[in-house]
């Protein structure tokens, strides 16, 4: 049971990190960025390829992976969102254009095999791979019957620290005030001299960098990197997390992430592993029907 709780905290950290980026974009733009899970996959894939196929050091690969994810945030903004905003397209159009970008990213990784156009990005096609064991330090301890893996333990402080930094930036810096102003009312923010387009681009960069990092942590610590980790592991769960916490609320997304991790682990322990995913979505459905504003709905008015 102790091991299970530890796993819940570990996987909850990754859910939270992923969902914070999701909810940030929703809070500022009122748009679901469906390319977010593809960015998650991309971060992990780039890091793996840099280490295994291009012989870079693990730490440099991580930094570059986050950098590529952040760049992809700019691509999302300039290719998928800004042209539609200029044309005053309905929000559903942005849903489709981000789906299109996600399709491109995943298809490119999927087709990455030796001899194809994308061999520089990925060489294992659709197969799941694991980071080679010597690539990063992974001390393992056995304490009181629990197995503590360094790589999994590290995920928890890293994500907590980043979310605290993000919270501080949002609450107490000039940039954060600008972002919150745009989230509240883009028009009024523009009248106050805030460069709304730049703030939105910044939102997507931050969000995608966090999403990419979540992918790297997931892929490294769980030893599972494939073109489908984003789609299978976090895409819909990310939605569940931001709904549990309240759409657009960052503290909500953090607590929602840990809550979902706990719900899933409890479902496995109490009901068996078959129902794990089903229980999470039943919880999501019930939550939306009974309390659409999420557990932290009181803060919904003060988003982000």
């Amino acid at each position: 049971m102790g091991q299970q709780i530890l796993n819940a905290i570990f996987i909850g950290s990754i859910y939270a990190l992923f969902a914070v980026g999701y909810t940030l974009v929703f809070g500022v733009l009122d748009i679901l960025n469906l390319a977010h899970s593809a960015v998650f996959t991309l971060g992990a894939a780039v890091t793996y390829t840099l280490v295994v196929n291009h012989g870079q050091s693990f730490w440099l690969a991580c930094v570059l992976g986050i950098f590529v994810a952040a760049l992809m945030g700019l691509v999302i903004e300039y290719v998928c969102l800004r042209p539609l905003r200029r044309r005053r397209a309905p929000p559903i159009a942005a849903l489709i254009s981000t789906i299109g970008l996600a399709l491109i990213i995943i298809a490119a990784i999927e087709q990455g095999r030796p001899g194809t156009l994308f061999a520089w990005l990925w060489v294992d096609g659709a197969n799941p791979v694991t980071m080679p064991p010597g690539a990063f330090p992974n001390p393992t301890w056995h304490v009181a019957g629990l197995t503590l893996e360094g790589s999994k333990l590290a995920v928890i402080p890293i994500s907590l620290a980043l979310m605290l930094v993000l919270g501080y930036v949002m609450r107490s810096t000039q940039v954060g005030r600008g972002l919150r102003a745009v989230a509240e009312n883009p028009r009024a923010a523009r009248l106050m001299g805030i460069d709304v387009d730049r703030m939105i681009a910044l939102t997507l960069v931050i969000s995608s960098a966090l999403g990419g990092l979540a992918g790297i942590l997931f892929g490294v610590a769980l030893g599972d990197i494939s073109p489908y980790i984003g789609r299978d592991s976090v895409e819909v769960r990310g939605l569940a997390v931001i709904v549990l916490g309240g759409m657009g609320s960052i503290p909500g997304a953090v607590l929602g992430g840990y809550l979902l991790g706990l719900i899933e682990v409890l479902a496995v322990v109490l009901l068996g592993s078959n129902v794990r995913a089903g229980v999470a979505f039943a919880a999501l459905f019930l939550m939306l029907v009974l309390r659409p504003q999420g557990f932290f709905g009181a803060q919904l008015r003060e988003r982000i």
Binding site: F26, D30, L32, P91, V236, L239, A240, V243, M247, V275, A277, G278, V279, F281, A282, L284, F285, L288, V289, P292
Partner: peptide, 23 residues
Amino acid sequence: VLRLRGVFLAIATIGFIEALSLG
């Protein structure tokens, strides 16, 4: 479910299909 609007309805219905197929 129909009390919900926009993205909330979308997410609730995704919850429904996932709970149905996986659960």
